[in-house]
Design a protein around this nucleic acid. Structure first.
Lengths: 203, 203, 203, 203
DNA sequence: TATGAATGAGCTTTCATTCAT
DNA sequence: AATGAATGAAAGCTCATTCAT
């Protein structure tokens, strides 16, 4: 079917764009380069996307969507509210650790891609912290943890994770990021007053 | 003296550049715009700086230097290792809260200014987390806190702070950022296993 | 076909560039001016050529190629070695006389276009003097002329020709340059010890 | 005296300019560079010269003047008309051979310095060929050589010399340029129908 | 659908020249 | 006389975007 081919092309362009954006950064990446990487032409790219921003945005949204789905699944797989929050972070970290490119895109390039992306980024951050916050709220409601400002806690968690990941990404030593979580996790739990880690499906 | 005028101009250009970078972001900011804001000409700017990057770098380094000095002073003013680390964070947060522009520069624009800045940014992050880590190491050595991976802890602290600040900055509601610390602080201390906050010169 | 149009455009740009370079000289000629003369845009020019130098070089190489071909043909059309050398010079002079622009390009602008062109110019000079030298070597070998330093002789011939042409070009009285050869030719032959001119297809 | 110092400065700037022009070519040479080489400032240069062109022109005229004086002296030192012409060429070649910079200036950079210099260059060429021509005219008048177009002959001589020198200069093997004249001289004489060289004060 | 030629606004940077000191 | 800060015009080049084919 025609539509299939079109969708396929679209995906191929997105794949190429991801590679190029990661290699060069948003601004340095030219549409020509992306077209070349996708084995098509400039015009070809512009047939599938209205402009360069849209490509990046699509990439960002796609990745965020995937991550959201996985995170929601991870949350659903746990019972305990604290374990749910913990699972969310673990999922995000694992995703970033597995795809340094993804991490770059989310944490570095998106900020440098200009004003227009800040709002979107805000939304994405909000989405993830929102998911975490919801679990923390449940935890507070159920008496599992003492009352605290869950919005700030969620942001603090997310931020701690980001910094650690970003530093590892920029420093280039992304190998072994998972091990880091072993050290990080007790701290995050300690931050919300949970002294002894709640075991929850960690390998 | 002519040197005085030159130095004055240099500062004026840096001031203008800060405003322009904050208003438009690194890439959107043109040297012409900076020149206009500094009430001089393009050539005038290029007399004082070799290129656009150098202006940004100068701004970044200058701000980082100031912040470092203040942070070191804040650390020196405390006795207790944990209080020292706490004071460091408090200083950074206060600086960012007081100068949203500064925060933008450090946390957002610097990432979008190109590859070259990533390394520099890494160094800056490393400097600050290094200062924090040193205090945590002392705290561990003195038995004030239980042993933990202080490098990760320092990054986690710094990251938590950054995310909170960045979110506030991007969301535009930077007013009252200090109050946030009241909620954030116990979490950070909890993360390193300090249950009840150590009082240390907080207003 | 699109390729045809592209090739056509390329030629049109080269034509325009030749006119502009001759009118203004290499440095004064701006790409914008060339674009205008070629009834296209700056970007259009840069689509076909990577930079200004490349345009000039293309022009130079193209002209040199044509001239080389013609000269080789003229050499081939003669039997006698001295007549061959003579024919080579005559071809060059006729070409320059016919296209003052060409002469300008070769003899004047190319020197002013910067260091990078000097090497290329050297090569071109070497090519032509090489062709002449080869004939003189033959003439010596065949005993037609007495032994002499043919490299220097070839350069001397080429230089004598150039100076005469250049002077006429710069002085603006390029009309009648051919007649000049009537006077110049016996001198060139005399320089290699040939007293009475060898007749060889001169009109 | 004040005037002495001023003149001294002027000369120092010219010396510096000669070095810079030779090192970088006319266009690449900036007034700043010249000022630096002359251990003064941009303003200092502009106090002594109205603009960049004037510096180059002054250099050109100065060098040409010196060369003219020497050439006239060399001519005066000979009796025989042909020997006089020969002496003129020998002087020019020796000067160029001794100062590759001078040769560069005259033969290469001056052509690239723009339209304005072409006229001046024409005049200079004319001056030298004029001197040579005068000797040749005398030689013809005195019956030393057969009648010929002395204007063309003079240009041919000058051109042959230039090409040889330029080639040697650009090729970088200017050492031993004097020896070249041993080969070149008989050719030049042969060009005007003088079979056996007239000995005249050659080393 | 796809191509790639064409556009043109806009950028950074350079530099001869001026001028207050 | 000299300095060097300042000017501003102009240049080369890039690239997102458009559009005829």
């Amino acid at each position: 079917m025609q539509q299939d081919r079109a969708r396929h092309r679209r995906v191929a362009i997105l794949d190429a764009a991801l590679r190029v954006f990661c290699r060069l950064g948003y601004h340095e990446a030219s549409v020509e380069e992306i077209a070349g990487e996708a084995r098509t032409s400039k015009g070809g790219v512009y047939f599938h996307f209205p402009n360069k921003q849209a490509i990046f945005l699509s990439l960002l949204d796609g990745a965020a969507g995937q991550l959201r789905v996985r995170t929601e699944a991870a949350i659903a797989a746990e019972r305990d509210p604290v374990a749910k929050a913990d699972a969310a972070l673990w999922t995000v970290l694992r995703a970033f650790a597995g795809h340094r490119e993804l991490a770059r895109l989310f944490l570095v390039e998106a900020l440098g891609a200009g004003r227009e992306f800040h709002a979107r980024l805000l939304t994405l951050h909000g989405e993830f912290t929102g998911m975490i916050r919801a679990q923390l709220d449940d935890a507070v409601a159920s008496g599992a943890i003492a009352p605290l400002d869950t919005e700030i806690a969620a942001h603090a968690w997310f931020g701690a994770l980001n910094e650690v990941v970003t530093y590892w990404v920029l420093a280039g030593r992304s190998n072994g990021l998972e091990e880091v979580y072993t050290s990080l996790r007790p701290m995050l739990l300690g931050a919300i007053g949970v002294a002894s880690p709640v075991e929850g499906g960690r390998r």
